[in-house]
Nucleic acid binder design. Sequence first.
DNA 1: CTTCTTACA
DNA 2: TGTAAGTA
Length: 137
Amino acid sequence: MLRVITKELTPMSDEKTEYTISDLAKEFEITSRSIRHYEDEKLITPTRRGVHRIYSARDRVRLQLILRGKRLGFSLAEIKEIIDLYGVEGEQRQTERLLELINVRRESLKQQLKDIKYLLNEFDVLEEKLTSEHQAK
DNA sequence: CTTCTTACA
DNA sequence: TGTAAGTA
């Protein structure tokens, strides 16, 4: 069932700590379906023991980064880009790229905010029109 | 009973 | 993402 091959004798770090897909799903409150999906998208690459997936502490960290990126509104492709930059030519490029994506995200949110404000105003105008029309009758 | 793959919604 | 189906 829910057994971790090696566990919490050392709160963290042990690269020998392994998790099953259900361990991680439960810990992060997501479904195993999502975790498998992230693997399909190449964001995580768990090892296999036969046909079963085995996740390392490192995989767990990557999963955390994926979930954090999602909360910030980034796509899996963008998250993958950032994660894959870790360890490459230092973290210089990773930081630069992250900053770039943050700006892209910021602009997107600004546009959405404009659209929402416009829509709210449209509703106000329409509502008033309908209201006065109703009273006229 | 849990995990896996595949495929459709 | 969820879920159904058929396995291992």
